[in-house]
Lab assay of single mutants.
Amino acid sequence: EPSQADLDALLSAVRDNRLSIEQAVTLLTPSSGGGSGGGSMDAKEILTRFKDGGLDRAAAQALLAGRTPA
């Protein structure tokens, strides 16, 4: 399960175009075949909204942490 520091680094990389959204989703869902963790939004949607400015960093982190299976 990614830590808050991992999520923060991942969000920074996506925002700075050092990591594509697809690459980030793969890192967030290493063994689930890329499927959502059952959250209301999947990781790709969360990351896309964050990059487009629709979500701030704290909200994106909380959503990603919340949808990651324990």
Rank of each mutant, 00 (worst) to 15 (best):
R18F: 07
A62T: 09
L7T: 04
L27H: 04
G66D: 08
G37V: 12
S31L: 14
I21M: 03
T29G: 13
L63Y: 04
L63A: 06
E22G: 05
A59R: 06
A58R: 07
T29H: 13
L28D: 01
G54Y: 14
I46L: 03
V25N: 03
E45W: 06
T26F: 11
S36A: 13
M41H: 06
L19S: 02
R67H: 05
M41E: 07
D52W: 09
A13Q: 05
E22F: 06
A13F: 05
E45S: 10
V14D: 00
A43C: 09
T26R: 09
A43L: 15
K44C: 06
S12Q: 09
L11V: 01
A13M: 13
A24Q: 00
L11D: 00
G53Q: 03
T29C: 08
A58F: 08
P2S: 11
V25Y: 05
P30C: 14
Q61G: 05
G37Q: 09
A43T: 12
N17G: 15
A62P: 01
L55F: 04
D6C: 15
P69N: 13
D8A: 10
L7G: 02
A5M: 15
S32E: 12
L27S: 04
S36L: 11
G38L: 14
Q23P: 01
D56P: 05
I46T: 03
F50A: 01
A70R: 07
S40H: 12
L7C: 04
L7W: 11
T68Y: 11
Q23H: 07
A58T: 07
D16C: 10
P30S: 15
Q4I: 15
E1W: 14
L55P: 00
T29P: 09
G37E: 08
A9Y: 11
D8I: 06
L27T: 04
D56R: 03
F50M: 02
L55T: 02
G34I: 15
D56V: 03
E45V: 07
G34F: 04
G54P: 02
S20K: 03
S32T: 13
P2E: 11
L64W: 02
G54E: 14
A58E: 12
T26S: 13
A62H: 08
S32H: 11
S40P: 09
S12A: 06
L19H: 01
S36R: 07
R15C: 09
D56C: 06
L19Y: 04
A70M: 03
S12H: 05
R57C: 05
G54Q: 15
A58I: 07
G37T: 12
G39T: 10
R49C: 08
A70I: 10
S31M: 09
D52V: 08
T48G: 04
S12R: 10
Q4G: 12
K51S: 03
A59M: 11
T29R: 11
D16L: 07
A43H: 06
D52R: 07
V14N: 00
L11F: 06
E45R: 05
P2C: 15
L55E: 01
Q4M: 15
Q23A: 10
S40G: 08
V14C: 02
R18L: 14
R18T: 10
P2G: 12
R18S: 08
L64K: 00
R67S: 06
M41W: 12
V25P: 00
L10D: 00
S20R: 03
R49M: 09
L27I: 10
A9N: 06
D8L: 08
E1F: 10
R67A: 08
S40M: 13
G35S: 14
L55D: 01
A58V: 10
G33C: 14
L19G: 00
D6G: 09
P30W: 15
L28F: 06
G35Y: 03
N17L: 06
E22R: 05
G38V: 15
G53P: 01
